[in-house]
Amino acid sequence: DRYEFNINGVHFTIDDAEEELIKLIEELLKRGARAEEIEEVIRRWER
């Protein structure tokens, strides 16, 4: 599934997002994580 979200006006799209990654990102968003922090999480996840 495609997952899309915005952080401070920056648009992100993840194709074939796994449910666990989506939950992790949503938790980070609730905590007010910065875009750079979430980008790093996504990079690590994709390795």
Rank of each mutant, 00 (worst) to 15 (best):
D1L: 13
D1A: 09
D1G: 13
D1V: 15
D1W: 06
R2G: 08
R2Y: 07
R2Q: 09
R2K: 14
R2E: 06
R2V: 11
R2C: 05
Y3Q: 03
Y3W: 11
E4R: 02
E4Y: 04
E4K: 02
E4I: 06
E4F: 04
E4M: 04
E4C: 06
F5W: 07
F5D: 02
F5S: 03
F5Y: 08
F5C: 03
F5V: 09
N6G: 07
N6V: 14
N6K: 09
N6E: 15
I7V: 15
I7C: 03
I7P: 00
I7M: 06
I7E: 03
I7D: 03
I7R: 01
I7S: 07
N8E: 14
N8Y: 05
N8P: 03
N8H: 11
N8D: 15
N8V: 05
G9M: 05
G9H: 05
G9P: 01
G9Y: 02
G9A: 03
V10P: 01
V10N: 08
V10C: 05
V10E: 08
V10G: 03
H11G: 10
H11T: 15
H11E: 12
F12I: 08
F12G: 02
F12S: 01
T13P: 02
T13R: 09
T13Y: 14
T13E: 10
T13V: 14
T13Q: 11
I14V: 10
I14K: 02
I14G: 02
I14D: 01
I14S: 02
I14M: 05
D15R: 04
D15H: 13
D16H: 15
D16F: 14
D16R: 14
D16A: 13
A17H: 07
A17D: 05
A17P: 14
E18D: 13
E18W: 03
E18V: 07
E19P: 15
E19Y: 13
E19T: 12
E19S: 10
E19D: 12
E20R: 06
E20L: 09
E20D: 10
E20V: 06
E20S: 08
E20H: 05
E20C: 04
L21P: 00
L21Q: 02
L21D: 00
L21I: 06
L21T: 00
L21N: 00
L21S: 00
I22W: 05
I22M: 06
I22Q: 05
I22P: 01
I22S: 04
K23M: 11
K23Q: 14
K23L: 13
K23E: 09
K23D: 10
L24P: 00
L24D: 07
L24G: 04
L24E: 15
L24Y: 07
L24H: 10
L24N: 08
I25L: 10
I25K: 00
E26K: 11
E26I: 08
E26C: 03
E26A: 10
E26N: 11
E27D: 11
E27S: 10
E27V: 14
E27Q: 11
E27F: 12
E27H: 10
L28V: 06
L28N: 06
L28T: 03
L28A: 15
L28P: 00
L28K: 08
L28S: 08
L29P: 00
L29A: 08
L29N: 04
L29Y: 06
L29F: 06
K30A: 12
K30I: 12
K30E: 14
K30H: 11
K30N: 10
R31W: 08
R31E: 10
R31I: 13
R31D: 11
R31F: 11
R31Y: 12
G32F: 04
G32Y: 04
G32M: 03
G32L: 03
G32W: 02
A33P: 05
A33M: 05
A33E: 03
A33H: 05
A33D: 04
A33W: 04
R34Y: 10
R34A: 15
A35P: 11
A35Q: 14
E36C: 02
E36D: 11
E36M: 04
E36H: 07
E36K: 07
E37L: 08
E37G: 01
E37N: 02
E37D: 11
I38C: 08
I38A: 02
I38Y: 03
I38F: 04
I38R: 00
E39W: 09
E39L: 12
E39F: 08
E39C: 04
E40S: 03
E40D: 12
E40C: 05
V41N: 04
V41A: 14
V41I: 09
I42V: 07
I42C: 02
I42A: 01
I42P: 00
I42E: 00
I42L: 04
I42T: 01
R43N: 11
R43S: 12
R43K: 11
R44W: 15
R44Y: 14
R44S: 15
R44P: 00
R44M: 15
W45G: 00
W45Y: 09
W45A: 02
E46N: 08
E46I: 09
E46T: 04
E46F: 13
R47T: 15
R47A: 15
R47L: 15
R47K: 15
